[in-house]
Protein backbone atom coordinates (compact mmCIF):
# COMPACT_ATOMS: atom_id res chain seq x y z
CA UNK A 1 0.00 0.00 0.00
CA UNK A 2 1.32 3.34 -0.88
CA UNK A 3 1.63 5.56 2.12
CA UNK A 4 -0.14 8.42 0.36
CA UNK A 5 -2.69 8.14 -2.42
CA UNK A 6 -2.24 10.29 -5.52
CA UNK A 7 -4.85 12.94 -4.66
CA UNK A 8 -3.50 13.49 -1.18
CA UNK A 9 0.03 13.71 -2.49
CA UNK A 10 -0.96 16.25 -5.12
CA UNK A 11 -2.75 18.40 -2.56
CA UNK A 12 0.13 18.16 -0.12
CA UNK A 13 2.64 18.96 -2.84
CA UNK A 14 0.56 21.97 -3.82
CA UNK A 15 0.51 23.26 -0.26
CA UNK A 16 4.23 22.81 0.39
CA UNK A 17 5.76 23.06 -3.10
CA UNK A 18 9.32 23.95 -2.16
CA UNK A 19 9.83 21.67 0.82
CA UNK A 20 8.64 18.37 -0.58
CA UNK A 21 10.29 16.22 -3.25
CA UNK A 22 8.66 15.91 -6.65
CA UNK A 23 8.05 12.17 -6.63
CA UNK A 24 6.12 10.45 -3.89
CA UNK A 25 8.12 7.86 -2.00
CA UNK A 26 6.12 4.60 -1.75
CA UNK A 27 7.24 4.38 1.87
CA UNK A 28 5.91 7.84 2.60
CA UNK A 29 7.50 11.22 1.88
CA UNK A 30 10.30 12.53 4.04
CA UNK A 31 9.19 15.86 5.46
CA UNK A 32 11.49 18.45 7.08
CA UNK A 33 11.14 18.44 10.84
CA UNK A 34 10.03 22.07 11.03
CA UNK A 35 7.11 21.33 8.68
CA UNK A 36 5.89 18.34 10.73
CA UNK A 37 3.11 20.15 12.57
CA UNK A 38 2.14 22.17 9.50
CA UNK A 39 1.72 19.03 7.39
CA UNK A 40 -0.38 17.39 10.07
CA UNK A 41 -2.51 20.48 10.44
CA UNK A 42 -3.01 20.73 6.68
CA UNK A 43 -4.01 17.06 6.45
CA UNK A 44 -6.40 17.36 9.35
CA UNK A 45 -8.07 20.64 8.57
CA UNK A 46 -8.00 20.78 4.76
CA UNK A 47 -8.09 17.13 3.70
CA UNK A 48 -10.17 15.59 6.45
CA UNK A 49 -7.64 13.24 8.01
CA UNK A 50 -9.21 13.62 11.43
CA UNK A 51 -8.37 10.25 12.94
CA UNK A 52 -5.03 9.71 14.62
CA UNK A 53 -3.64 6.27 13.87
CA UNK A 54 -0.09 5.83 15.06
CA UNK A 55 3.44 7.14 15.36
CA UNK A 56 6.40 4.84 14.82
CA UNK A 57 9.92 5.76 15.85
CA UNK A 58 12.77 3.56 14.72
CA UNK A 59 16.46 3.55 15.50
CA UNK A 60 18.97 3.39 12.63
CA UNK A 61 22.51 2.99 13.93
CA UNK A 62 25.03 4.29 11.39
CA UNK A 63 28.30 2.72 10.33
CA UNK A 64 30.32 5.47 12.04
CA UNK A 65 28.69 4.72 15.38
CA UNK A 66 26.28 7.65 15.43
CA UNK A 67 22.54 7.30 15.84
CA UNK A 68 19.83 8.26 13.36
CA UNK A 69 16.14 8.10 14.06
CA UNK A 70 13.09 8.01 11.85
CA UNK A 71 9.62 8.95 13.00
CA UNK A 72 6.66 7.96 10.86
CA UNK A 73 3.18 9.30 11.52
CA UNK A 74 -0.03 7.78 10.15
CA UNK A 75 -3.39 9.53 9.97
CA UNK A 76 -6.67 8.23 8.62
CA UNK A 77 -9.62 9.82 6.86
CA UNK A 78 -12.76 8.19 8.31
CA UNK A 79 -14.78 8.34 5.11
CA UNK A 80 -15.92 5.77 2.59
CA UNK A 81 -13.50 4.76 1.09
CA UNK A 82 -11.12 5.31 3.96
CA UNK A 83 -7.47 6.07 3.25
CA UNK A 84 -4.40 6.59 5.36
CA UNK A 85 -1.69 9.21 5.06
CA UNK A 86 1.82 8.56 6.32
CA UNK A 87 4.92 10.69 6.28
CA UNK A 88 8.36 10.39 7.79
CA UNK A 89 10.82 12.57 9.63
CA UNK A 90 14.51 11.80 9.65
CA UNK A 91 16.43 13.15 12.59
CA UNK A 92 19.91 12.93 14.00
CA UNK A 93 21.25 11.88 17.38
CA UNK A 94 19.51 14.76 19.15
CA UNK A 95 16.30 12.73 18.68
CA UNK A 96 13.80 15.53 19.10
CA UNK A 97 10.62 16.11 17.12
CA UNK A 98 7.70 18.44 17.84
CA UNK A 99 4.66 16.81 19.37
CA UNK A 100 1.30 16.48 17.63
CA UNK A 101 -0.58 16.59 20.92
CA UNK A 102 -2.15 20.04 20.34
CA UNK A 103 -3.73 18.67 17.15
CA UNK A 104 -4.54 15.14 18.20
CA UNK A 105 -5.11 14.20 21.83
CA UNK A 106 -4.68 10.58 20.80
CA UNK A 107 -0.99 11.23 20.25
CA UNK A 108 -0.54 11.43 24.00
CA UNK A 109 0.16 7.80 24.86
CA UNK A 110 1.56 6.84 21.47
CA UNK A 111 4.27 9.47 21.79
CA UNK A 112 4.94 8.56 25.38
CA UNK A 113 5.37 4.95 24.32
CA UNK A 114 7.85 5.86 21.58
CA UNK A 115 9.76 8.05 24.02
CA UNK A 116 9.85 5.16 26.46
CA UNK A 117 10.86 2.41 24.08
CA UNK A 118 12.94 4.23 21.44
CA UNK A 119 14.03 7.35 23.24
CA UNK A 120 12.78 10.01 20.84
CA UNK A 121 11.77 13.16 22.70
CA UNK A 122 8.59 14.90 21.63
CA UNK A 123 9.08 18.56 22.47
CA UNK A 124 6.00 20.29 23.77
CA UNK A 125 4.32 17.14 25.04
CA UNK A 126 2.60 18.03 28.31
CA UNK A 127 3.39 14.82 30.15
CA UNK A 128 6.37 13.03 28.63
CA UNK A 129 6.96 10.17 31.07
CA UNK A 130 7.69 6.51 30.56
CA UNK A 131 4.57 4.56 29.67
CA UNK A 132 5.46 0.89 29.56
CA UNK A 133 8.62 0.46 31.58
CA UNK A 134 8.98 1.36 35.27
CA UNK A 135 9.94 4.97 35.95
CA UNK A 136 13.46 4.06 37.07
CA UNK A 137 14.26 1.93 34.02
CA UNK A 138 17.58 2.52 32.30
CA UNK A 139 17.85 2.62 28.53
CA UNK A 140 15.36 2.42 25.73
CA UNK A 141 14.55 -1.21 24.86
CA UNK A 142 13.71 -0.83 21.17
CA UNK A 143 17.04 0.72 20.25
CA UNK A 144 19.17 -1.63 18.23
CA UNK A 145 21.97 -1.30 20.75
CA UNK A 146 19.79 -2.63 23.57
CA UNK A 147 20.19 -6.38 24.12
CA UNK A 148 16.91 -8.26 24.17
CA UNK A 149 17.88 -10.25 27.26
CA UNK A 150 19.19 -7.37 29.33
CA UNK A 151 19.09 -8.50 32.97
CA UNK A 152 17.30 -6.44 35.56
CA UNK A 153 18.25 -7.64 39.03
CA UNK A 154 16.78 -8.79 41.31
CA UNK A 155 13.80 -9.75 39.19
CA UNK A 156 15.38 -11.24 36.10
Amino acid sequence: MAALDADTWAALRGAFPSALPIDADPSGPVVPVDLHVAVARFLKESLGFTMYVTVVASHWPQADGSDRFEVATVLRRPSNPSVTAAWRLQIGPEAEVPTLFPLFAGADWQEREQFDLVGVRFTGHPDLRRLMMPEDWEGHPLRKSYAIDTPHPPWR
Binding site: M1, P26, T54, A72, V74, R76, T84, A86, R88
Partner: peptide, 19 residues
Protein backbone atom coordinates in the same frame (compact mmCIF):
# COMPACT_ATOMS: atom_id res chain seq x y z
CA UNK B 1 10.26 -0.33 2.67
CA UNK B 2 7.51 0.78 4.99
CA UNK B 3 4.01 -0.60 4.99
CA UNK B 4 0.90 -0.06 7.05
CA UNK B 5 -2.15 -2.30 6.97
CA UNK B 6 -5.08 -2.47 9.32
CA UNK B 7 -8.14 -4.57 9.92
CA UNK B 8 -11.19 -4.01 12.06
CA UNK B 9 -11.03 -6.32 15.04
CA UNK B 10 -13.75 -6.56 17.71
CA UNK B 11 -11.92 -3.77 19.51
CA UNK B 12 -11.24 -1.49 16.55
CA UNK B 13 -8.50 -0.69 14.10
CA UNK B 14 -5.65 -3.10 14.71
CA UNK B 15 -2.88 -1.91 12.45
CA UNK B 16 0.62 -3.10 11.84
CA UNK B 17 3.39 -0.78 10.68
CA UNK B 18 6.18 -2.82 9.16
CA UNK B 19 9.64 -1.62 8.19
Amino acid sequence: GQHYAAIDTPRGELGTYLI
